[in-house]
Amino acid sequence: MASSIEYKNGVQPSDRWEMILTRKAYGEMLVELGKNNENIVVLDADLAESTYTKFFRAEFPERFIECGIAEQDMMNTAAGLSTFGLIPFLSSYAIFLTGRAWDQARNTVDYSKMNVKIAAAHGGISVGLDGCSHQSMEDLSNMLSLVNMTVLVPADYWETRKMMEWIPTHEGPLYFRLGREKVPTVTSESTPFEPYHTLEAVGGSDGVFIATGLMLSRAVQAAEMLAEEGIFSRVLHVPMLKPLNDEEILQAAKETGAVVTMEEHSIYGGLGSLVARLLLGNDVHVPTRIIGIPDMYLMSGQPEELLVKAGLTAENGAAKMRDVLALRG
């Protein structure tokens, strides 16, 4: 039955996925962008090996600014660079950029509408073995609450590459979240990235999974599981959380009558909160479940083990979809 699933927009069935790093796509694309655009400058805070800005550093050392272990200084240095027409990309881990340097992101970059691109590696809990101090489940809510910030969460390697082509054309503060681990290539080279839009990954009318980032893969897997039972759920990917395409999400909820959101982020203030606000505020009263990280700190462990602990699994997605479909009737 799974074979009768309607994969859309170049999205691949799970048995064809490869595991590749999103941060590697970031590093590769920085070099490509740097070749064609001399305004691109890159900053890092002693993590160039890990964030893959090392590729850019090797190619364009005169446009690479190592800030040392000083994320607050890096955020504001980038802001200053942007005032000379440069397009700074700055990298560190999500928790440090959006935690320690949040005041700089808010009061300098966002409030002044600086053209700064914040590229955060190690988003989510799939960071794994480093443990809670290096995991980030608060970064999206920290950035979504900033008035001028555009917030992007790519699903995989291919989408990261396409986002990177678009980002320099965007004017203003922007946050985008990369992971630590290799993640499945749910999308393919032919999958479009359309800014300000959602991406329909799987067609269907038995409820809709609304997912972002790594959790797109779990949502597609959940849809595959349900298809074995004759349930065909739609999967909608949200690569751009802000500005959010309200209409496309509302339409999917109305057409399918049941919603399960999936994100690798705290249930406080991420995608689930956005969708719930949207549905309630527009009187779209469909059964809804939010899958995110419960109110808990995680720990060291293999990424997959931590995702299971937090309930961020395809199995949980499928179970919640059965629940909301039962309520929908």
């Binding site: 955020m75 240095t77 802001a79 000379f84």
Partner: peptide, 13 residues
Amino acid sequence: SVAHGMALGARIR
């Protein structure tokens, strides 16, 4: 930090 970023920006430019 912002001022220093500006100064570096001028130099890169």
